[in-house]
Computed example of a mutant assay.
Amino acid sequence: MRKRKFLMFGVAMAAGLVMGLVSAVPASAHGATMMPGSRTYLCYKHSRASTGEIKPTNPGCKAAFDKAGATPFYNWFAVLRSDGAGRMQGFIPDGKLCGGNATVYDFSGFDTARSDWPVTHLTAGRSIQVRYNMWAAHPGRFDLYITNSTYSPTQPLRWSNINSTPFSSVVNPPSSGSVGSEEGAYTWNATLPSGISGRHIIYSVWTRSDSTETFYGCSDVVFDGGSGNVTY
């Protein structure tokens, strides 16, 4: 009987600990581009070892890890501002676009200007199926922007480096897969800008229509005739 009591006490303590951890997770919507992959998503995907640990080998991902540790990797879907309300220039400071000037987790390591982040190979003018993770499902608008000829991978990203008109916009696109999983995603077809080549950033903004929460993200791409393959 004594052993049984101790066993039941241990189970209760474990259950309480799990519930405490669950309740500590922020109750916010989350998401990020998976195709073309955002910096946070591709760094998480490539750096996660079979043991679950984060062990980056890509130089850009390792620099981000060295700055802020593993937390922003495990929370790759949480580059957000709860008070964003769709605001961009004048709200997110120059040089902090990729990290969204986030206040929940430290994504500032992903703002580092460098040319060795994981990159998705694309073809200008072609149509792609965009996949945007829905860690939590909410209505809203998705806008994709492309950097202009002033962009340099080795210089901090500024609003002046991004075309002011999105090349793709969609409201409440269809979704598939399970909410709260890596497989769950919103999908839509987007025609990539034509007449461009070399390295660029596709900048994504997801603005919820049921709150002021807004998500920001950088996807490093190179227009070289590719069809979506990723180089780490």
Rank of each mutant, 00 (worst) to 15 (best):
P156F: 01
N163L: 06
I146Y: 01
P139T: 14
T147V: 06
T150W: 00
R141M: 08
F142V: 12
P139N: 14
A137I: 11
L157S: 11
P166R: 03
S152A: 14
T154E: 13
S164W: 01
F142M: 14
T154V: 14
P153S: 10
Y145Q: 06
L144D: 03
Q155I: 01
N148W: 05
S152P: 02
F142C: 04
S164T: 13
R158G: 13
N148V: 05
T165G: 02
P156V: 03
S152E: 10
P153W: 07
N163C: 01
T165W: 00
Q155K: 15
R158T: 15
S160E: 12
N148E: 04
S149K: 14
P139L: 06
S152N: 15
Y145A: 08
N161K: 04
P139F: 03
R158D: 11
P166C: 09
S152W: 01
W159V: 12
R141H: 07
L144I: 05
N163R: 05
N163V: 05
F142P: 00
P153L: 09
L144F: 06
Q155T: 12
Q155R: 13
L157C: 10
T150F: 02
P139K: 15
N161I: 05
S149I: 10
A137N: 13
R141G: 00
R141I: 14
S164M: 01
H138N: 14
Y151S: 07
H138S: 10
P166L: 09
P166K: 05
T147Y: 03
S149E: 15
S160G: 14
S160L: 05
D143Y: 00
D143E: 14
T150S: 15
F142A: 04
Y151L: 09
A137T: 13
P153R: 09
P153A: 12
L144E: 01
R141N: 13
T150L: 11
I146W: 00
S149P: 10
G140I: 04
H138P: 08
T154F: 00
G140N: 03
T150P: 01
I146V: 15
S164R: 07
T154K: 12
Y145G: 02
I162C: 08
H138C: 07
P156E: 03
G140W: 05
P139D: 15
L144Q: 03
T150G: 02
S164V: 07
Y145C: 10
L157N: 13
P153M: 09
N148H: 06
T154N: 15
H138I: 09
T154I: 11
Y145P: 06
T147E: 05
S164H: 05
P166W: 03
I146G: 03
T154L: 08
Y151P: 04
P156G: 01
Y151K: 08
D143F: 01
A137W: 08
W159C: 11
R158N: 14
D143K: 11
N163T: 09
T154P: 02
I162Q: 03
R158S: 15
L157I: 07
R141D: 09
S164G: 03
F142L: 15
Y145D: 03
T150Q: 08
P166Y: 02
S164C: 03
L157V: 08
T165Q: 13
F142W: 12
T154D: 15
T165F: 00
S149C: 08
T165L: 08
I146P: 00
S164Y: 00
N148R: 02
W159T: 13
I162K: 09
G140L: 07
G140H: 09
W159Q: 10
T147M: 11
P166S: 12
N148S: 09
L157K: 10
T147A: 12
